[in-house]
Nucleic acid binder design. Structure first.
Length: 328
DNA sequence: AAGACGAAAGTGGTTGA
DNA sequence: TCAACAACTTTCGTCTT
């Protein structure tokens, strides 16, 4: 019972959002919500994962459905990718009240003072300044890579955690932001190539890789092994291939995994080669160069994987030349 | 001419002594 | 710390369609 009360090292987990991570203590995934206490507790070892959770439910009671409908709350949802979670007050620069009337001179000087302090207080600590900068970099990077909102929010959460662990010390904000985004994509099974993320940010691939590994080690985040199948959808749509080709590609990848062809191989190259084979099989041929470009590997790698695939899966080249047929 | 193929040399990361 | 190693890249010449 005593164990239930201890919160890990003064750390605060995200409040009011779903934590996608396992328990840092036992790695368990069964998280129990204790709504009366406002706590999130690991069902495996009893560690309190977060306390002071925000009750997002209504604070009023309604006794009829009309009453329930007539009461509501408005406002933007909490967003972790905005440094103050979108909660801060904004004082307009216009000297007008809500209905557009001009303010009296005394009122105006009062608002002027309020505005000044509001701006001063918004970014008050070094941590907030860091967050503000990091979150704008995150937005820039994520929109350049076309990464959807939920993954950005997860990246923001990872960044907030790494700030708590003081990982940014001695590293560039850009590198850590890029690393959190890369990790978030992989956690949500929408992996991007390390190259791709490094290109979009001003961070070298090496730095990015170092930051990423540090992130995993320190935050104890479990990232699923990168699976070539996860790349198929994106590559296929970039190459304008039909869903038939996608399905065939996935089938080929499953079979090649059974043959042990995937061990130690770059998943990007595997996905590329499988797409190449499937595109020929289903008569939607794309060139090795085009596929290699999309997958960010070289044609040589596509060729090598393709050769292995054809050899081990017993796919034969028909006398006609370019058409391939599987032997099941 | 474009695309595919293959050889050779070079690169960065991992492993084991 | 260093050498060996596997996987991958780059480059370039040749063959095929």
């Amino acid at each position: 019972m005593e164990r239930m009360r201890e919160s890990k090292g003064g750390e605060r987990y995200n409040h009011g959002t779903t934590d996608p991570m396992n328990c840092p203590e036992c790695g368990g995934v069964s998280v129990v919500e204790d709504t009366t206490r406002g706590e999130q507790v690991c069902g495996g070892c009893g560690l309190v994962l977060s306390d002071h959770r925000i009750d997002t439910g209504a604070e009023w009671r309604a006794f009829s459905s009309e009453e329930s409908d007539s009461r509501s709350r408005v406002g933007a949802p909490l967003r972790l990718s905005v440094h103050d979670k979108g909660l801060s007050t904004v004082i307009d620069w216009r000297d007008q009240d809500i209905s557009g009337r001009r303010l009296s001179p005394t009122r105006r000087s009062e608002i002027y003072r309020l505005r000044k302090w509001q701006i001063r207080s918004r970014v008050h600590s070094s941590m907030d300044r860091n967050l503000a900068q990091a979150m704008s970099e995150l937005e820039r990077l994520a929109s350049q890579l076309g990464i959807p909102r939920p993954i950005r929010e997860l990246a923001a959460l990872l960044y907030r955690k790494s700030l708590l662990y003081k990982l940014v010390r001695g590293r560039s904000i850009e590198a850590l932001v890029a690393a959190t985004l890369y990790a978030a994509c992989r956690i949500r099974l929408k992996p991007r190539a390390l190259d791709e993320v490094a290109d979009a940010s001003r961070v070298s691939k090496k730095k990015l890789g170092q930051c990423y590994r540090l992130l995993l080690r320190t935050l104890n985040v479990k990232v699923p092994l990168s699976n070539p199948v996860d790349y198929v959808g994106r590559f296929a749509s970039e190459l304008d291939l039909s869903s038939r080709v996608q399905l065939r590609t996935i089938e080929l990848l499953h079979r090649s995994r059974d043959f042990g062809l995937t061990i130690g191989r770059d998943p990007l190259g595997l996905a590329a080669a499988a797409i190449y084979v499937a595109s020929i099989m289903l008569d939607e041929r794309r060139t090795q160069r085009a596929i290699a470009q999309v997958a960010r590997v070289t044609e040589v790698t596509v060729r090598n994987r393709y050769k292995e695939l054809v050899l081990k899966l017993g796919i034969t080249t028909a006398p006609g030349g370019s058409s391939l047929s599987g032997s099941n």
